[in-house]
């Protein structure tokens, strides 16, 4: 009868244990961040695999999301004769929400899982252990450059996503459905506030970048060194990143836009 309770308790303890280990690991990363400054080449190399290789999927997704927004926004707005407001509707939903959130979700799937798999494989094949024995700290040499690269990449990718999507909305709204080009841009500028909307969106993507980068490198470093362990930890990276991003988005939205 107490079986389920015990299992719940064990699960809870496991969660807290992992959280604790995750935070200790984060502390080690933060204490070793200096290496990103002293050896920028390591970060540049990771920026390639984390950022550049995510560029295509982010840009294409951005284009489609923007076009869908333009289309759906138009259908709704035209009922109220307010289709000039299309620009502000598209831009506000992008810079406040969709840009940071969708980019973070795609990024977790594309780059986060790859980071976890790569680090996990290095652990499984004893490459990390081997580095330690060569007196090279794997946290500095392997983890920190990847963490920093992911942290930098996400805000840049989110900005690219939003910019491309705004143009996607323009193609559909102005090019296809005949909204006036002037009002598309001027309504946008009149209603999107730089500090309140754009900056808050950037802050969101910085937070998401931090969290996704953290989860990805932690899961990789914490992998159980078997093939099953690796597949579990890559899955966990995607699932946990997605949940963390959505939950944090809710909290941040409340903090940033809750006062109106």
């Amino acid at each position: 009868m107490l079986g389920p309770l015990q299992r719940l308790g064990r699960w809870g303890l496991g969660v807290f244990e992992r959280l604790g280990r995750g935070h200790l690991f984060l502390l080690r990363i933060l204490l070793s961040l200096g290496v990103a400054v002293t050896r920028p080449r390591l970060v540049i190399k990771e920026l390639y695999s984390v950022g550049v290789l995510s560029l295509l999927i982010i840009a294409v997704s951005g284009l489609f999301v923007g076009m869908v927004l333009g289309y759906q926004g138009y259908i709704t707005l035209v009922k109220f004769g307010a289709e000039e407001a299309l620009g502000s509707v598209v831009a506000l939903s992008l810079v406040r929400e969709l840009g940071p959130v969708v980019t973070a979700l795609l990024f977790a799937g594309r780059a986060g899982s790859a980071l976890t798999a790569e680090i996990g494989l290095m652990k499984t094949t004893e490459q990390l252990s081997g580095m330690e024995m060569m007196a090279v700290d794997p946290v500095k040499r392997v983890i920190v450059p990847r963490f920093v690269a992911a942290f930098i990449s996400l805000p840049l990718l989110a900005a690219i996503f939003s910019a491309v999507a705004v143009m996607g909305g323009y193609f559909i709204g102005v090019g296809l459905l005949g909204v006036d080009a002037g009002s598309y841009w001027s309504q946008m500028q009149a209603n999107v506030d730089f500090y309140k909307d754009v900056m808050n969106g950037i802050i969101k993507s910085l937070v998401f970048g931090f969290v996704v980068a953290w989860i990805a490198v932690f899961e990789g470093h914490d992998t159980v060194p078997t093939s099953e362990g690796m597949s579990r930890s890559t899955t966990r990276t995607v699932v946990h990143s997605a949940l963390a991003v959505l939950a944090l988005d809710f909290i941040l939205t409340g903090l940033m836009f809750g006062d109106i």
Binding site: L121, M122, T125, E126, Q127, S129, G130, M131, M133, A135
Partner: peptide
């Protein structure tokens, strides 16, 4: 100290 110890792992542990 480790710089003065070499270790050869069973798998070789080369950086792939």
């Amino acid at each position: 100290l480790r710089r003065r110890m070499g270790m050869l792992f069973q798998s070789g542990a080369l950086l792939t």
